[in-house]
Amino acid sequence: MREWLELWFPNVMVRLPEFYKAIRDTLTMFSVAGAFVFVLGLALGVLLTVTRRDGILRNAVIFQALDKAINVFRSIPFIILLTLLLPLTRFIVGTAIGVRGAIVPLVIGTVPFFSRQVEAALANIDGGVIEAAQSLGMSSLGIIFRVYLWEGIPMLARAATITAISLIGSTAMAGAVGAGGLGDFAIKYGHNRFMVDVTWVTVAALVLLVCAVQIVGSLIARATTH
């Protein structure tokens, strides 16, 4: 087995510790940035939903400001956002390079996308159900947590899956500016030093990660759809 691997993936096998570290770095970026994206995106998506014209906390000022800000950030390509945010990143985490430095742009680049996904997911919830909750005397906070977020779970799980997969893509891209991780690994050896086997193995690792995320997301969506 080992000989076989060394025959087909020679450049990976001599850099195994580095390869494992790249996987760990990618998973760290993915999970830390993902946690922030999930919480912030969910909050902003809910805020968009409740402040819109027919929302339960209608507020044109907040809605318009948020709506426009999300559009602006969504129109900036991630690779440009990375450099654009350098000063902010340094201010927040003290460095603009490495895994830590990548997390700030990853969060800021993905939150607007996830907010829109959350908004779209919650828009599927029937207004009549919200009306029924109001008629029961539920508070706005109660409606957000016990109706929107509860009824929306299957659709939110799908939205989170799509966002998570897009986030994995972004972590690889962050590698290009020295963030480490699988993207960095592939560019450093596979691209710059023509080690094609490194590229293949990196791709395989990313595909596995994406598949795992997709399977978990689909399972949650299916289990919560009644």
Binding site: D126, G128, S135, G137, W150
Partner: peptide, 29 residues
């Protein structure tokens, strides 16, 4: 909100919560 609790309402499309059981739907209020 407190006054609304004493005014029940039912609808043409029932407006039940699909993600909750019958028990949970009734108990939510």
């Amino acid at each position: 909100r407190k006054a609304r609790k004493k005014i029940g309402m039912i609808f043409q499309q029932f407006n039940l919560m699909a993600g909750r059981t019958v028990f949970q739907n009734v108990a939510i209020g």
